[in-house]
């Protein structure tokens, strides 16, 4: 059972589409493969499409949060796209709100976010918490 989830490279981004019901070891392997690939390629962004994932439990959720944190340290942004509404509802009820993980509704929006993260940050700030937004980095 040495199957792995393929990682595609597109310009300076890495793309991952999870299309299988992941067992835990597969999730851990993806975490390792992605961090290796980021440092090999110098990718600045990672897009993970989870639209075919029917559930995200605490283990997979932790893997997603880990990938996000690790890639940030390696100077790459991670965006999770395509989460099914039922999965989002269940995740929050489970107690996982994935802080620090960037999400987008679909691949297109996710790519836009990776290509121009600033534009999006400005629009968040304009949405009403520019003061908090600027301070948050200093406080942490």
């Amino acid at each position: 059972m040495m199957d792995r989830i393929p990682i595609l490279r597109m310009g300076q981004f890495l793309l991952v589409t999870i299309q299988v019901d992941m067992h835990d070891r597969l999730a851990l392997a993806l975490q390792d493969d992605l961090t290796t690939k980021i440092s090999e390629t110098g990718a600045t962004g990672v897009l993970i499409d989870i639209s075919s994932l029917e559930i995200v439990d605490s283990f997979i959720g932790r893997m997603v949060a880990n990938i996000s944190a690790m890639s940030k340290i390696l100077d790459a942004q991670t965006v999770i796209v395509g989460m099914q509404p039922a999965v989002a509802i269940t995740l929050v009820e489970l107690g996982l709100s994935l802080p620090g993980v960037r999400t987008a509704l679909d691949v297109e929006r996710g790519m836009a976010l990776l290509q121009n993260p600033r534009v999006n940050m400005t629009s968040y700030a304009q949405a009403g918490d520019e003061e908090n937004f600027d301070d948050s980095d200093n406080q942490n």
Binding site: I55, D57, A86, I89, T90
Partner: peptide
């Protein structure tokens, strides 16, 4: 319903693990 299915499957996944 799909949401209820997702909830019970997720709970089962946690307990099985």
């Amino acid at each position: 319903s799909l949401v209820d299915q997702t909830k019970i499957i997720t709970a089962a996944s946690e307990l099985a693990r």
